[in-house]
Amino acid sequence: MVDLSVRIGSLTMRNPVTTGSGTFGFGSEVADLIDLNKIGAVCVKATTTHPRTGNPAPRIVETAGGMLNAIGLQNGGIENYLSEKLPYLRGFDCPIIVNVPGEDPEDFAYVVERLTEAKGADAIELNISCPNVSHGLDYATDPKATAEVVARCRRATTLPLLAKLSPNVTDIRPIAQAAEDAGADGLSLINTVIGTAIDARTRRFKLANVTGGLSGPSIKPIALLHVHRAASAVKIPIIGMGGIMSATDAIEFLLAGATAVAAGTANFINPGVALEIAAGIESYLRANDFTDVSQIIGAVR
């Protein structure tokens, strides 16, 4: 018998695989293709204080081994989430992680409070690192700004609080420590890597937003290093993500020090991938005579 369950603060996941925010909708869209009752947790699309229309098109371009997105956090807002999206997802036996971006600490805290009082989440992921909506500064590129948002939201909820960190930094360790010190129960990393794409034929940028966030297999080496570095700097658990397409990819993140993992872009190709990854992790543990997933967390030599 292999124990696949992991804990992120007070959140227990039956297996260590969740979904990257913005790559799984609100679950209902893909319910034909995956059993939501078996998934480790569902992390839903970013939810903001007010509805957001998102960025102009084109919003996504494919790149070698990945894609750039500049969606711009299109969503119906927190009240729409609570009334229209949450009831459906609560019909399944799966923990819900809600990704929360914000304009400033008070804006973050407002959504965190609403989610808490409305029992709209089992954990909250603070999106302090979205590359597509920043006003020149992502919170997660600065330890002080990171601490400010996390500390404000810590006062607003007792739910497990994750800080989603940016890879677009020189050294992730001080930022990871700042989030831990400010009261985060865990870290999610990495968010997408900022980049752009140009069309030689038309001599135009391919994205209307010019810049976008790179995701997919091409960013996995970047993500693995950030996860490993952050894990060496903090005691709180890490949800590792960035280019995870298979169980082997996920196992590499666990070895690097992640307690759990998220499939992101892979959902676009195979919305059932989270359960395939969980099954693959179980097979690997069994084949290597491990009895508990915790035995391989941070076990890279």
């Binding site: 869209e29 893909v30 293709l33 997105n69 969606i71």
Partner: peptide, 28 residues
């Protein structure tokens, strides 16, 4: 005819602009 990265309504990439100022998903 818009690029549809996922086709199932989860990526929000295939935005179709509507006259009311909102974006629809080309796929769903």
């Amino acid at each position: 005819e818009v690029f549809m990265p996922c086709g199932v309504g989860i990526c929000m990439g295939c935005a179709v602009a509507r006259h009311d100022g909102t974006y629809a998903r080309g796929c769903t």
